[in-house]
């Protein structure tokens, strides 16, 4: 019995030691974990790359982890204690709610980007010959949107369908992605003919294709290149409000998190955001200085 106890305690101590060792391994490097709404993921990846570059030589010992999902899913995870230090949502209300619940740092609350809702269809398909957005939607066999229960872009898509007067009629054709990236993937893999997504996703695909292929076109999931043009319709005018994306730091506030937020205000970062398909919010305190707002490049058909 005594021996057994010793054996057990040795085993226990080894376990504790191992766990601590693993824990130390994780925490020695300064780690910043960022939760980002799926629509902003590719921009966030570029931002973190630029941030690392800028930080460069003075402090190499840090690491940025990016997790993306729909804003509502990330919000729920943070409420349950997920270890994120920064949260970039696709709306303003989730960050506000986190401040109200005591998870968010109040003075880090801000709007970091204004997104554009677009409707995408394939150029050579019959559906794209339609003259109006309403007609495209009426001809579509399947329309991919993000889940309106957890994704602000899903709510925006429903709002656009409602103001176009087709929400009820087109309800059976809606295919709901777990987040906006999945809705876009449904379209990209050619399993739906129309998708209502954030302009940034369409932009990021164009960028990726340019990076890996000399010709711009969509590459299917099977790797086969498809020479296809996209028809993209801006749906902003069918929304009551633009999609304002808010962010907040999560307690406890890390110095590295503050550093990243400061970096977001630099011209380097702002250029990445606008090139990613977003508008910059006009800062409240500099409204009179009429900051130039760059209009994002949205592909024409």
């Amino acid at each position: 019995m005594h021996h057994l106890f010793i054996a057990h305690s040795k085993f226990f101590i080894t376990c504790v030691f191992l766990l601590q060792f693993l824990g130390i391994q994780n925490t020695t490097a300064d780690t910043l974990s960022i939760a980002v709404a799926s629509n902003f993921r590719s921009v966030m990846e570029q931002l973190s790359e630029a941030f690392n570059e800028q930080r460069g030589d003075n402090q190499v010992d840090h690491q940025i982890n990016i997790s993306s999902a729909s804003s509502g899913i990330l919000y729920a995870q943070i409420l349950r204690g997920a270890p994120f230090q920064l949260f970039f949502s696709a709306n303003e209300s989730y960050p506000e709610k986190l401040v109200a619940s005591g998870h968010g740092v109040a003075d880090t609350l801000a709007t970091y980007a204004i997104g554009t809702l677009v409707m995408v269809s394939r150029g050579e398909r019959e559906v794209s010959e339609a003259k109006s957005p309403k007609e495209i939607l009426s001809k579509a066999k399947r329309i991919a949107i993000a889940n309106p229960r957890t994704a602000p872009y899903g709510i925006a898509a429903i709002e656009a369908l409602e103001s176009l007067g087709v929400a009820h009629e087109r309800q059976p054709t809606l295919v709901v992605g777990n987040n906006i990236a999945q809705a876009w993937q449904f379209f990209h893999s050619d399993n739906v003919d129309v998708a209502i997504v954030a302009a940034s996703l369409v932009n990021s695909v164009e960028r990726i294709e340019k990076k890996y292929n000399s010709d711009v076109g969509l590459t299917g999931p099977d790797g086969k290149e498809k020479q296809q043009s996209l028809r993209i319709v801006d749906l902003s005018s069918y929304l009551k409000h633009p999609v304002r994306q808010g962010r907040v730091a999560i307690k406890p506030m890390l110095p590295l998190a503050q550093e990243f937020l400061d970096f977001m205000r630099t011209s380097v970062a702002e250029k990445i955001i606008t090139e990613g398909g977003y508008l910059l919010p006009v800062p409240a305190d500099t409204k009179s200085s009429m900051n130039a707002v760059i209009i994002p490049p949205i592909m024409s058909p």
Binding site: S189, D190, G220, P221, D222, K226
Partner: peptide
């Protein structure tokens, strides 16, 4: 993943 590819009309 493979089913999604197989289901694609292409």
């Amino acid at each position: 993943f493979y089913l999604l590819i197989a289901f694609s009309p292409d």
